[in-house]
Design a protein around this nucleic acid. Sequence first.
DNA 1: TGCCCAAAACCTGTATGACATGTTTTCTTG
DNA 2: CAAGAAAACATGTCATACAGGTTTTGGGCA
Lengths: 240, 240
Amino acid sequence: MVSDRSIGPDETNPGLVSAAIQAITQHIRVEGLGPGDLLPSEADMTRKLSVSRTVVREAFRSLSAMRLIDMSAGRRASVAKLDIGAMSMVIEHGVTTEQISIQQVYDVRRTIEMRTVALAALRRTDAEAADVQKCAQLMRENYRAPEIVMEHDIAFHEAIARASHNPVFSLIINAFSGVTRRTWVIGWRTRATEEEQIKMIEGHADIARAIIAGNPQLAAEHMAAHFDKSVKALIDAGIA
Amino acid sequence: MVSDRSIGPDETNPGLVSAAIQAITQHIRVEGLGPGDLLPSEADMTRKLSVSRTVVREAFRSLSAMRLIDMSAGRRASVAKLDIGAMSMVIEHGVTTEQISIQQVYDVRRTIEMRTVALAALRRTDAEAADVQKCAQLMRENYRAPEIVMEHDIAFHEAIARASHNPVFSLIINAFSGVTRRTWVIGWRTRATEEEQIKMIEGHADIARAIIAGNPQLAAEHMAAHFDKSVKALIDAGIA
DNA sequence: TGCCCAAAACCTGTATGACATGTTTTCTTG
DNA sequence: CAAGAAAACATGTCATACAGGTTTTGGGCA
């Protein structure tokens, strides 16, 4: 069981700090605050909750760590724009503590990205289509520099997620990019010959073309093929 | 863009606290710690990093808020088991600040759960199949009490995610359960007649049967139909 | 020796006060 | 009225203190 008696996001967890966190998130909800809106100062919260500044600070800091709020010296905290924040840390934590395998991550990515690419083919603007294509193009141009190819590869998938016009997909895919960075090179090295590496890059171009053509079916098929090859490469490299 | 210049999970963010957070996660990685393993005490960290206890505490507290570590009075912090933690808060934050719509959440859920249900049909143990069926059964037995039906509904989807044997799917689906709780009743009320409500519950039974039968194709189809009906219900209720 | 229990040592939770530094507001002055 | 200095306000970090929980230690008893 992943969440044995999960106490949920607004938990009643003993401790003043948890109560303070709850009070702050509730404040955001009740006041209907949106990204950029200012929160009460620490001193205000201290008075309102009748707890020490220590407690209020730890609460603010916690929300900041999850990127639910933005903090910076001298100015009050503000509601944050949607951001990977905590999500990527949760995923990375799961992988580094061996509670999640790379293969499992790839299965999830495959599932999600087959959908995002189909949505992208349907809903992309021309500018978004151009972004996607540009990433594929940059991969091709830099195919001798793995690190650079990797960054454009990641950017490619993020661009597709954006073109899907569903920020939740972007959120999740971005959350995986940290893990991807740690395994990408392994998959690349497994593609021994230059020919195979070029074929992999061309797979991205195929996906881009399908998006530009507005063909969701074809786009999803290319994406699936891409992931199948990637997973195979990782398995060949001995990654369980 | 969801992550404009995201500084990643191990960011170099000005501030001693961020550095401390990084030091702690790095400690986990370097020492190869797993769930339950103990971390250094705050005093140790204070010495090791040459910063005040305040800073170290805020770092620990931040990781605790993300549920990457467990803290409790008197004992040292320990590495946490995989948990929704921050993820559900990020999602809820996105919804309450209107950066994410309910419909977008449902699209993601549909995408993911069509996959989990197929995997569950393939990989379920008998015990897991029984769990799923039991949830469907409990929904039927309590169909006059919406709140109870809802809890079993959520449990139903979580049970399927577990049966998929991929904790990442469980993680994501669980992250959505908070939002689901806030919208479920709306969808239920839209199903005006008792007959329709029963039909909705029977949809779950169909899914359960397909899982028990080990038929991934059929299971996915039933799941898709279930989500299509749910989304329709929400749209009828005027939820954008 | 082996076990149990009390004291000590250790650890986290919270409060208070202080000061540095960054930001916003206010007021003065040209 | 505008520009700039000063004040007010905010967060970042540190030091210290003490309450209460947990683990370790060590002594005494069977």
